[in-house]
Each structure stands twice: as structure tokens, then as C-alpha cells.
């Protein structure tokens, strides 16, 4: 019980939700597997030098598009850069965009959706209209317009370039979470156990946090884990349209969009960053599944 994620405070409460969940998680092969992959990916993003000695920016046009070999496991890209090094170094930008955007939308969306759904009435109307304003603009389109309005130039530090992509996607992305949250909260609110808690005189904050949230969080987790991959993919799409992340930033998205014209001649240019992207998405979704199973009280 002492290694509980909730920390010391939770130890006082026997069998808290978080404690139970953590205990379950540690036993889940799905969780352990995906967490291990994510740890590796995060390490790759944080300290790429651990995985390769090659410089991703050292390129030689003479090697342009050469297939994988003993010297370069993943082959070379269009500029004759080592694909292995590019793929390792690409993890940082891609994972940052995915994770940060997901965090932004999950937090903003959940808060807005929960308040709207739980309070109903005027609050709901106001928040729902506010949500609609952003919801009504398709995400990719909105991101294009935002990024076209605030373009990154070469002087923009790379964290700002990444930040812009995160905000452009996040500004419109949170609405789906809000709506999902709202509709589940409305559903959960009417369920017997919430009614019972209210009947027993629980305050609205307590009801929200202890009863509604844990029960409404599952769809948001499912959505967030899938959408995380989608954001990484959208980052690639924006690069493809010429307005997302830009060189000198190295990302899987840029690599994939660069490779697109060469699918037929040099499939390795697409294959390796593509495979890493897929594995990342896979890992996060598996993690999400595991977490949801653990947190969902109805499964016990």
C-alpha cells in the first residue's frame, strides 16, 4: 500500500479508488508492456544520444535515398541523412506535440464538459454555446487558418514552433472531449448511485469528484488515447500541407510527409518513421485501455 500513486494522504484511506487501480495496473501485462514501450519512447525523446551516436543533421547528398544497409540500418533519406538517427531524434517533437495537445484538450475539455453537464441549465447553455463556437470549425481547417495567420519563421525557436502546432490543434480539439464529458455526465448524473449520494447530502463538489468524474472519465480516456496518435498524425498532415512543424525541427511527421513522393522508389523512407509512429500510437492506446479497465469501478 505504501507505493500507492496517490501518495501518503491516500494511505489513510483503506482501499481508495486510486489505490485499487494502481494495484490492478501493476498486474496487467497490457499496462506493463505499454508502459515499458512508452518509457523507451520518452527516453528516446529526452536523451536521443543514448540510442545513437550518429548526428541526424550530418547528411551527404551522395547517399540520397539509399536503402538500409549495415552502415545505416534504416537507410538514408532524401538529403542523405541517416534515417536511424533522424527517427530517434524525431521522437521528441512528435511525442511532444501528441502529449501536450492531448493534455491541453483533455483538461480543458473535461472541465468545461463536466461543469456544463453537471450543472445544466444556464451554465450548460452558456458553456455549450461556447463549445459550439470552436466545435463548429473542423480541426484541420482551423489549425490551417491559425497557423497561416501566425506562421513560424526561421527565427522562431523550435519550442515556439511546436507550441504553435499544439495550440492550433488544441484550440479546436478540446470540444469533442467537452461534449463527450457532458453527455456522459448527464447520463451518470441520473444514475442511482449519484442520486443516492446526493440524497445523502453530499456536496456538489464531492459528488462531482468522487462519483461523477470516476464514472465519466472512461470515454475521455478512450478518446484521449486515440486522439493522441491522431495529433501526432495531424502534425504530419500539417507538415504535408507546408504549415506545420518545419525543418530544422526533426519529427516523424516531417519525415513521413517527405517520404510520401518516394513511396514507390524508397519505401524505407516511409516505413521506419511510420512504424515508430504506429508503435507510439499503439502503446498509448494500450495504456489507455489498461488504465480505463483499472479505473472503471463497474468492472469490479
Amino acid at each position: 500500500m505504501s507505493r500507492r500513486r496517490g501518495g501518503g494522504h491516500a494511505a489513510a484511506v483503506p482501499r481508495s479508488l486510486a489505490g485499487d487501480a494502481w494495484r490492478d495496473l501493476r498486474r496487467s501485462p497490457l499496462f506493463v508492456g505499454s508502459a515499458a514501450i512508452i518509457l523507451v519512447l520518452v527516453a528516446m525523446a529526452a536523451v536521443p544520444g543514448l540510442f545513437t551516436n550518429a548526428d541526424p543533421r550530418a547528411c551527404d547528398l551522395a547517399y540520397s535515398r539509399q536503402p538500409p544497409s549495415g552502415d545505416a540500418w534504416f537507410g538514408y533519406d532524401l538529403q542523405g541523412c541517416d534515417m536511424y538517427a533522424r527517427t530517434i531524434y524525431g521522437a521528441r517533437a512528435s511525442i511532444l506535440v501528441g502529449v501536450l495537445t492531448t493534455v491541453v484538450i483533455a483538461v480543458v475539455g473535461s472541465v468545461v464538459g463536466m461543469f456544463a453537464g453537471y450543472h445544466g441549465g444556464r451554465v450548460d447553455a452558456l458553456l455549450s454555446r461556447f463549445t459550439d463556437m470552436f466545435f463548429a470549425v473542423p480541426m484541420l481547417l482551423g489549425a490551417i487558418i491559425v497557423l497561416a495567420t501566425f506562421p513560424s519563421t526561421i527565427d522562431t525557436p523550435s519550442w515556439q514552433t511546436i507550441g504553435k502546432v499544439v495550440l492550433a490543434l488544441g484550440v479546436l480539439g478540446w470540444t469533442t472531449v467537452a461534449r463527450l464529458m457532458r453527455s456522459t455526465v448527464i447520463q451518470v448524473k441520473q444514475s442511482d448511485y449519484v442520486q443516492a449520494a446526493r440524497g445523502l447530502g453530499a456536496g456538489s463538489r464531492r459528488v462531482l469528484l468522487r462519483h461523477v468524474l470516476p464514472n465519466a472519465v472512461a470515454p475521455v480516456v478512450v478518446y484521449s488515447t486515440i486522439i493522441l496518435g491522431v495529433f501526432v498524425v495531424l502534425e504530419a498532415t500539417l507538415s504535408f500541407l507546408g504549415i506545420g512543424l518545419q525543418a530544422p525541427v526533426i519529427s516523424w511527421g516531417i519525415a513521413i510527409s517527405d517520404a510520401r513522393a518516394y513511396i514507390r522508389q524508397s519505401p524505407h523512407m516511409l516505413l521506419f518513421p511510420g512504424a515508430f509512429l504506429s508503435v507510439t500510437v499503439l502503446a498509448f492506446i494500450m495504456l489507455g485501455d489498461a488504465v480505463r479497465d483499472a479505473f472503471d469501478p463497474r468492472l469490479r
Binding site: R57, C59, D60, L61, S64, L78, Q79, G80, C81, A148, P151, T153, I154, L241, G242, I243, Q246, A247, P248
Partner: peptide
């Protein structure tokens, strides 16, 4: 590609600066 060529030859940093 031109930047790659310049970078490799002169050993200086070279980057593209793009408008969409």
C-alpha cells in the same frame, strides 16, 4: 539539398527559411 551541400562543404550551419 542545397543547404546539405553547403553544410557539408563549408562546415557551416545552413537552413531553409520558408514561407508556406
Amino acid at each position: 539539398a542545397a543547404c546539405t551541400s553547403i553544410r557539408e562543404t563549408l562546415g557551416i550551419d545552413c537552413q531553409g527559411d520558408y514561407d508556406p
